[in-house]
């Protein structure tokens, strides 16, 4: 518990609450894990060819690397997510759910529209990774706006 006898400080210099510290540390951990994963992926992908964005590439990677990345995404990410969701307060949970709400509707609309237009020969073949990252981006943007810009 914070010592409530300490002098009241200006808003920007206020110490982080316990929840905020834990939340921040989890997010830093996720960023580090993402950075390490991205760096490792960059090393195992032999040739990017004409694809400028590594994470949008569909180029082949070694099976062993694929298993490691799949474990990171399929096991560590859910475990960290469960821990994070137990850490956040209700306002942040609400902000996150709102982000997920908008992201879901983007996915539910954009994916079939792209797919049906592709079948009609009007657009290139749907790229699942582009849809995936855009969905995450929308979720993250709404979450940050609702949490920090309200």
């Amino acid at each position: 518990m914070t010592d409530l006898t300490e002098a009241k400080m200006p808003k920007n210099d206020e110490p982080l609450t316990k929840k905020e510290r834990l939340n921040r540390n989890i997010l830093i951990g996720c960023a580090l894990l993402g950075g390490i994963t991205g760096g490792a992926m960059a090393m195992v992908v032999p040739d990017l060819g004409e694809q400028p964005l590594l994470t949008l590439s569909n180029s082949e990677i070694p099976a062993s690397a694929a298993i490691i990345f799949a474990i990171i995404w399929g096991f560590f990410l859910p475990v960290i997510s469960i821990f994070w969701h137990r850490t956040v307060d209700e306002q942040e949970a609400h902000a996150y759910k709102e982000g997920a709400y908008y992201a879901f509707y983007f996915y539910a609309i954009a994916a079939p529209v792209w797919w049906i237009l592709w079948r009609g020969g009007l657009v290139p073949e749907p790229n699942g990774i582009v849809i995936y990252y855009t969905t995450l981006l929308i979720c993250g943007a709404v979450w940050v706006k609702k949490k920090y810009m309200s």
């Binding site: 914070t2 609450t17 929840k19 905020e20 306002q91 942040e92 309200s150």
Partner: peptide
Amino acid sequence: RDWSQAQLGEHLDVSRQA
């Protein structure tokens, strides 16, 4: 009570943003 947002947050177990 002369509390900062962080201090109130500690009492309520929520963040300053909340």
